[in-house]
Nucleic acid binder design. Structure first.
Lengths: 132, 132
DNA sequence: GCTTGACCTCAAGTTGGCTTGAAGTTGTAC
DNA sequence: GTACAACTTCAAGCCAACTTGAGGTCAAGC
């Protein structure tokens, strides 16, 4: 069993964030020693999963839906599959953008506005914003 | 010259957002007709650039630094190059995550926690969170 | 000449994901 | 037995990027 500072040290998450995650039900502490929370070791795995989800662009609410609230992380395969697909689409978009930016950097022409490549990038960007 | 509702219609940005962008200096209106703002057509280009920047994960402040405040979008090539590199790193990370998620979906083993692939993904995720 | 509707300003509210601060409690070291 | 650091709770604050709302103005159509 780990106290909050040890868990913080191991994961790099500040204690405030760990308390917050417990408060919203993302992790659990398994008892107290006096006032102090005690966490089981496998909470580190859960935290890694949470970090993973955030990196992939999921909100904490989505992550909770994906990994469940109970003790062991129970992964929802169907949802994960969908999310992998979304992630894939995002990667494709970012790739277009990256290439587009590099093009702009190298394209010495003053008029990007007329450049078909540039226009294509902008269409991608606009499409994405429209979706908000 | 376009009034705000026409600009909104063309770009898909709500009028409130356009006013907000003007307020923080991201776009300019070029005069009024009575009370009503009038925008030049090329503001749509600027808005596309802004959308582009956001899609690439830049804050509005960063975008302002990149495209400048004056009339014509003046792109900062050096910064853009850096940002393309960052974007590239992000793409690499997301790719690892995507593949990792797909692996989890297909890996019928109960114990992802022991799977080296899964561990690798988690390391990436943790590293990223650490950087916040 | 009055109603309507599209615009205007300015302040305040919203969301997510936390952090910060004040005030209290506890186990350990001296 | 007391000082201390490390925890605790709870409320409030913070940030970006907007949105919403109240109350006002203006041009056009009937």
């Amino acid at each position: 069993m780990l106290d909050i500072s040890e868990l913080s040290r191991r994961t790099g998450f500040p204690a405030s964030r760990l308390r917050y995650y417990e408060e919203i039900g993302l992790i659990r502490s398994s008892g107290r020693k006096g006032l102090k929370r005690l966490f089981e070791e496998d909470v580190t795995t859960r935290l890694a999963l949470i970090a993973l989800g955030q990196t992939a662009g999921f909100s904490l609410a989505e992550i909770r839906a994906l990994i469940g609230v109970e003790g062991k992380p129970r992964l929802d395969r169907a949802r994960l599959g969908q999310q992998a697909d979304r992630l894939n689409a995002q990667i494709d978009e970012l790739t277009v953008l990256r290439d587009g930016i590099r093009h702009i950097v190298n394209c010495s022409a003053e008029n990007h506005l007329d450049c078909p490549r540039f226009r294509r990038i902008m269409r991608v960007a606009m499409k994405r914003r429209g979706a908000r």
